Amino acid sequence: MSLPSVELRALLDATLAHYEDRAAAFWAVTRDHDVTQNRSALLAALGPGGPWTILDVGCGPGRDLKAFSELGHRAIGVEGAGRFVAMAQAYSNCEVWQQDFLELDLPQGRFDGIYANASLFHVPRQSLPLVLARLHAALRADGVFFASNPRGTGEEGYRDGRYAVLYDWPSWRSLVAAAGFAPVSHYYRPGDVPVAQAQWIASVWRKI
């Protein structure tokens, strides 16, 4: 059964409040987390050339914004938590827009790549098709979309104070393909454990 918009708003607001209250602690834990593999997966799919214009969706305190910028790309963040917006601007020196997933207002066809690392799993399942449609519209023709999400078997609800949806690969593939993306590749993280034990699914897509 679909939730009314007021309940969806409450779910997302609770998750944003969780991050607002723990912004400094979250940054301390994630600042040095190595996701070079994920950034490289997006850039590899974009191919030679550039510099590229990249939208970091749910950019948090700005770790990956800064990394993309230091590689010479134009990186722009979008983030719902106000404290993260300020932190990301200060840390990365990049432009950051304060928008949450239920109210995305993105310029159409502006971005070469969209990078959503550990963010889209906070979108309630019923709202994900609309979010993906807005990301699709924001990409240029043949643009590349990267996403990394925690792995599960369809669980949806609060986990550690944050709303989360945990997808398996077939379910995630179906949802993203339905939004107009063609799969390029996917892999599991961390890569040093058997696939059955890997807790994250990373995937790369091309706009069609």
Score class of each variant (00 low, 15 high):
Met1Cys: 10
Met1Gln: 12
Pro4Asp: 11
Pro4Val: 07
Ser5Ile: 11
Val6His: 15
Glu7Arg: 13
Leu8Ser: 03
Ala10Val: 03
Ala10Met: 10
Leu11Ala: 03
Leu12Asn: 08
Asp13His: 12
Thr15Gln: 10
Thr15Met: 12
Thr15Ala: 10
Leu16Gln: 11
Leu16Asn: 08
Ala17Asp: 14
His18Ala: 05
Glu20Asn: 01
Glu20Phe: 01
Asp21Val: 00
Arg22His: 15
Arg22Gly: 01
Ala24Cys: 03
Trp27Ala: 15
Val29Glu: 13
Thr30Pro: 00
Thr30Glu: 12
Arg31His: 06
Arg31Thr: 04
Asp32Asn: 14
Asp34Cys: 11
Thr36Arg: 14
Gln37Cys: 10
Ser40Trp: 10
Leu43Tyr: 03
Ala44Ile: 02
Leu46Gly: 12
Gly47His: 05
Gly49Phe: 05
Trp52Thr: 05
Leu55Asn: 06
Gly58Ala: 09
Cys59Ala: 03
Lys66Ile: 04
Phe68Val: 08
Ser69Leu: 03
Leu71Gly: 02
Leu71Asp: 14
Leu71Ser: 08
Arg74Pro: 00
Arg74His: 14
Ile76Arg: 02
Ile76Lys: 01
Gly77Ala: 08
Val78Lys: 00
Val78Phe: 02
Glu79Asn: 07
Glu79Thr: 13
Gly80Asp: 09
Arg83Ser: 09
Ala88Asp: 05
Ala88Asn: 11
Ala90Gly: 04
Ala90Asn: 03
Ala90Glu: 11
Tyr91Pro: 09
Cys94Val: 04
Glu95Ile: 01
Gln99His: 01
Asp100His: 08
Pro107Tyr: 03
Gln108Glu: 14
Gly109Val: 05
Arg110Gly: 00
Ile114Ala: 11
Tyr115His: 06
Phe121Lys: 00
Phe121Tyr: 15
Phe121Asn: 06
His122Gly: 06
Arg125Thr: 12
Gln126Ala: 14
Ser127Glu: 14
Leu130Ala: 15
Ala133His: 13
Arg134Ser: 05
Ala137Gln: 14
Ala137Gly: 12
Leu139Arg: 00
Ala141Asp: 15
Ala141His: 08
Val144Lys: 04
Val144Leu: 06
Phe146Tyr: 15
Phe146Gly: 04
Ala147Glu: 03
Asn149Thr: 12
Pro150Phe: 02
Arg151Thr: 08
Gly152Asn: 08
Thr153Ile: 06
Glu155Phe: 06
Glu156Ala: 14
Glu156Asn: 04
Gly157Asn: 04
Asp160Leu: 10
Asp160Thr: 12
Asp160Ala: 15
Gly161Asn: 09
Arg162Leu: 02
Ala164Glu: 09
Leu166Tyr: 13
Leu166Gln: 06
Tyr167Gly: 02
Asp168Ser: 13
Trp169Ala: 13
Pro170Ser: 14
Pro170Asn: 11
Ser171Glu: 13
Ser171Thr: 14
Trp172Leu: 15
Ser174Tyr: 03
Ser174Gln: 13
Leu175Tyr: 01
Leu175Asn: 02
Ala177Phe: 04
Ala178Val: 09
Ala178Met: 10
Ala178Cys: 02
Ala178Lys: 11
Gly180Glu: 11
Phe181Asn: 02
Ala182Leu: 08
Tyr188His: 15
Pro190Asn: 07
Pro194Asn: 05
Gln197Glu: 15
Gln197Pro: 09
Ala202Trp: 05
Ala202Gly: 13
Ser203Thr: 08
Val204Ile: 12
Arg206Val: 15
Ile208Ala: 12
Ile208Asp: 11
